[in-house]
Write a protein that binds this DNA or RNA. Structure first.
Lengths: 222, 222
DNA sequence: ATAATATATTTGGGATACCAAATATTTTTC
DNA sequence: GAAAAATATTTGGTATCCCAAATATATTAT
């Protein structure tokens, strides 16, 4: 096994986990290849290897699923990623929208003990800087019942909890329009035509696209 | 360029730097291959690639040298390594002899900004947990005039400053015999026959081999 | 100086992760 | 149900990093 096989493998597992939590429909070869920006042939080849290792399962309808082992691995990588993000923001004073790429590197550092010590050092944070829950060392994730903002109801006010997308371009946009976990958003109008909506944030009115609203996860304000 | 080319390259540069600081004689292909536990053919091939990139130079006598650029890169990797070691010991409460392998992973995280922030977070430490100096962000190394313990004089007392070897087996041994940076060692006797010596550490007499003594770097106690 | 030894280099090959293009197969649409 | 579109798979090929074994070239010892 090459030195870097493990890191590559981890990227596939993580991608599968993310796609699964993000999409309703089944994850197929093309979807995974598109998401990972890889050639379908490459992905197919790798799926066979991962299936041999009992990390994924290809169902008769060709959809790809993580096995229990695979999902567990994926969750532990995400745990690492999110804990490192907390470190970068809390200790090294990075902004919450600057840390994704660094955490993407740090998540591959191989040592369970290190992650557990990091968690303790950070005082067992429940959420990362984007508001996503941090799985515990057994892979348990506290659920944070949220809906995407585009399913919000006209006139209601919601609290931003987390985001379904962690690309820098998206996070930069959010910073720009002043949205972060904890922000209160009131849905003023929903436009069926393109799925966009008009919202109010701290006395500012704003128009946001469906794509953006889908990636903002909120809870009804009590 | 593959994803991991950079990491591989960094390992070669670091190995060359370490060999250079450790040995008097020239570093040749075999020495480097032996040190890195790689086949000479592999190393030769890589030296050509690194020479093309102006990171190393192969002299007419076949000895291998880092170029200025190569050395600079090597030093910055060592800087990262040592800063992460401080983090692991000071913040995550690792013992100083447990951190080498983890730092070996962390040193490849790619971000100058991250290292500089880490340094600031750690309050600009001058030495790592093994007593080795931490280069500054420009690659400057504070020198710590030391001699290997095997060159110590009978009857003199020395202060342990750092170590010339960072393998776990060696560090474990040191922990066992209670030697760390700061420890005072008195040379009681030197045996020419095998280069071993008899020393006193905190009222305990101890016999150490030449190999061990060579890797313990000390300063005469004032 | 020659044999023995050490070092350097070449040659041919392997594993991993990737791709583009061709070919199957399945699904959708009309 | 046939054509079009989407998806899946195969095939042939690339780059990187690695090795073992053969060969060439130095170096050392006698």
């Amino acid at each position: 096994m090459s030195h870097f096989t493990k890191q590559v493998e981890e990227n596939y597992l993580k991608a599968l986990f993310k796609l699964k939590s993000r999409e309703i429909k089944k994850v197929n070869n093309i979807a995974l290849a598109t998401y990972m920006e890889l050639n379908p042939a490459t992905v197919l080849e790798m799926m066979r290897k991962l299936a041999d290792k009992n990390l994924v399962q290809v169902l008769p309808d060709k959809s790809i699923q993580l096995t229990e082992t695979g999902e567990r691995k994926a969750i532990l990588i995400i745990r690492k990623h999110r804990l490192w993000e907390v470190f970068l923001v809390d200790k090294l004073k990075y902004k919450w929208n600057e840390v994704h790429d660094l955490a993407e590197q740090l998540e591959h550092i191989e040592s369970d003990d290190l992650v557990n010590r990091l968690e303790e050092f950070l005082k067992f944070p429940a959420f990362d800087p984007h508001g996503d829950p941090i799985p515990d060392k057994n892979g348990k994730i506290k659920l944070n019942a949220t809906i995407p903002l585009n399913l919000g109801k006209k006139g209601k006010t919601y609290t931003v909890k987390s985001f379904a997308e962690t690309e820098d371009a998206f996070l930069d946009y959010l910073t720009n329009i002043n949205i972060q976990p904890g922000t209160k958003i009131t849905v003023l109008d929903l436009y069926e035509y393109d799925g966009s909506s008009s919202v109010q944030i701290n006395n500012n009115k704003l128009h946001i696209s469906e794509k953006v609203a889908q990636n903002i996860l909120v809870q009804l304000k009590k």
